[in-house]
C-alpha cells in the first residue's frame, strides 16, 4: 500500500534498536491522521500493516505479533457492566489495543463502589459508569475507540447492541440480568466471557452456542447471591477481570477460548485454583 499516509509515516517514524522495530510516536501519529482524515485507530492499523509500531503498543510487541496486533485493533467487543469487573476489563482491553469497545452500564457511581471499582472516584460519584469509563479510556488508550452506552441492556435493546460485535464480556453485577445477555449473544453465535465474585471467591468461564457452561450458575434469577453475604473484595474482582481479559484476548488473537464450557474457580482465602467442566 502506498499513499500519502505511508509516505508521511516513512518520514516521521523512528527506530527502537533494542527491539529492532520501527516506531511512531503518538503525537506524530495524531498529526498524520489529522492530515489524512483518519481516526487514530485507523491510523494505528495502517502503521502496523506497514511494519511500524505505534509507541503506546510497543511493549505488546513480541508477546503479540503484528498480525495479532492488527486483529486486536480491528476487533469489536461489547463489555456489559462498567463496575467492579467491567472497570478492570475495560482498562486491560483498552491498554492491550482492542480497537473498539462498546461499554454498557446504566448505573452511576456511589460511595460503596470505592472499595474495588477502578473507575470510581470521589470526584465521579453520581456520574454514569460507562461514560466515566469511556473518558478514562480516551486518556489512557487513545488508539482505541470506546463508546459508552449509558443504559442497561435488556431483551429489547440487546439485538442492536450486539450488531457487529465479535465477543461479549459479561461483567454484570448480580444474577438476574445475566441470562438474557448470554442467550441473546449465543443465539447470534457470539461467544460470551463471564465472571463473578463473592468475597475472596472468583469464578470465570466462557460459553459458545455449542458449549454452554458457567451460566448454569445463574439459571435461577431469584437465587440468593453469595456476594450479598460475603461482599466484593478488590483482589478477587481484579483477578477475575484479568482472567476475563486474557480469555477475550485469546479469542480475538487465536479464535480459541480456554474456558468454553468450563469454570475457573479461584479461592483467594485458601489460594486454591481449579478448573471445572460445567457442560
Amino acid at each position: 500500500m502506498s499513499s500519502s499516509f505511508e509516505t508521511g509515516l516513512e518520514r516521521v517514524c523512528g527506530r527502537d534498536e533494542q527491539r529492532r522495530v520501527r516506531t511512531v510516536s503518538l503525537s506524530e501519529l495524531k498529526s498524520l491522521c489529522a492530515r489524512e482524515g483518519l481516526s487514530l485507530r485507523e491510523g494505528a492499523l495502517r502503521c502496523v500493516a506497514h511494519g511500524v509500531e505505534p509507541l503506546p503498543l510497543l511493549k505488546c510487541l513480541h508477546g503479540v505479533e503484528p498480525q495479532g496486533q492488527a486483529r486486536l485493533l480491528g476487533a469489536s467487543v461489547l463489555l456489559v457492566g462498567a463496575g467492579g469487573l467491567g472497570g478492570y476489563v475495560l482498562e486491560l482491553l483498552a491498554r492491550f489495543g482492542v480497537g473498539r469497545i462498546d461499554v454498557a452500564d446504566g448505573d452511576v457511581f456511589e460511595e460503596s463502589n470505592l472499595n474495588r471499582q477502578l473507575l470510581s472516584s470521589v470526584g465521579d460519584l453520581g456520574r454514569n459508569k460507562a461514560r466515566v469509563g469511556a473518558e478514562r479510556a480516551a486518556r489512557i488508550a487513545p488508539l482505541v475507540e470506546v463508546r459508552p452506552l449509558e443504559f442497561f441492556l435488556d431483551r429489547s435493546n440487546l439485538p442492536r447492541a450486539l450488531e457487529g460485535v465479535g465477543v461479549v464480556v459479561d461483567a454484570l453485577g448480580g444474577i438476574a440480568p445475566r441470562m438474557a445477555l448470554h442467550d441473546a449473544a449465543l443465539e447470534r453465535g457470539i461467544p460470551v466471557v463471564a465472571g463473578a465474585v463473592a468475597g475472596w471467591t472468583a469464578v470465570v468461564g466462557s460459553e459458545t452456542a455449542g458449549k454452554r457452561g458457567i451460566s448454569l450458575m445463574w439459571g435461577d434469577a431469584a437465587a440468593a447471591d453469595a456476594e450479598h453475604a460475603l461482599g466484593s473484595l478488590a483482589p478477587a474482582v481484579s483477578l477475575a477481570a484479568a482472567l476475563m481479559a486474557a480469555e477475550v484476548s485469546r479469542y480475538l488473537l487465536h479464535g480459541e477460548l480456554a474456558l468454553a464450557g468450563r469454570m475457573l474457580h479461584a479461592d483467594l482465602a485458601t489460594f486454591s485454583f481449579e478448573i471445572y467442566d460445567v457442560e
Binding site: 448480580g174 445475566r178 463473578a196 450458575m217 453469595a226
Partner: peptide, 10 residues
Amino acid sequence: LGIFPAVGGG
C-alpha cells in the same frame, strides 16, 4: 466434591 452457591457479584 466441590460445592458452590450462586456467585453473581461484579
